[in-house]
Amino acid sequence: MSLYYTLFRLALQEAIQYRVESAIYFLYDVLPPIMMAFVWLAAYEDQTSVGGFDLSQMLAYTVGIMVLRTMLTSHIEWAMDHEVRQGLLSTYLVRPMNVCAQWFVGELAWKAVRGVLVTPVLIGSLVWLGPYLSLPPLDIGQMLLLAVSVVLGYLVCFALKLCIGMLVFWTTDINGTMTLYDVTASVFGGVLVPLTLLPEPLYALAMVLPMRAIYDVPLGILLGRLDGAALWWGVASQVGWATVLGLFARALWQRGLRRYEAVGG
């Protein structure tokens, strides 16, 4: 355990070193939802409901997605791309240590920095949009479930990004794939607009893609839009995706490593 604590401490120091870069990527994550809040405020001047969301829910969703995309989106594929390409993986593999665990802990440290950055933005947003917000209060059970769902969302995203990062073993360029993922996730993960606003075929597609399990399920719980069977089905899908993608990442890791071992680092 003290190994992972030390690793976290080092990664945290490193993340703090890169505060300028962190801040830029942070803006990349928080600015679009803030713009969307302005868009929604204007759009709701003529109507009371868009896609089944009233203004209060829509703004809460927008602030929620701002926080969740900042906190839950893993960028481990960048680190993997860098480390495999630079041959740093070789230096990890000869040490008695689990490389994936190292990536996971390192990523957590970066998320901790994100948490510090996003807090004042969240407070500012709540001050700004607070007058429009009237959400049903969550009971303790729902709050617990929300917390579990947020953690699961992170695990789904981490596992998914691990799978994407593993492509570095097979291709010389994963930038294309990463961009493709970003676009896909912003539509099918509900980052751009809530999924219910998608036209029917896209909505159906979104429901069977893993990105839904990252942001949409916890936000559904927060807004009180998921209940009964839909609620449990949502959380179960998160568990399912985290498991399936985790196992897939592991299989890719083993095969990728065989390739790395065959070709050399």
């Binding site: 003290s2 190994l3 120091q13 490193e14 041959g87 740093l88």
Partner: peptide, 20 residues
């Protein structure tokens, strides 16, 4: 190849190796 943490003092990497 650089095995030490690039942005940190070397002593930090040594401490990590101690744990590893």
């Amino acid at each position: 190849k650089n095995q030490l943490w690039w942005d940190l003092p070397a002593i930090e990497s040594f401490l990590l190796n101690k744990e590893i």
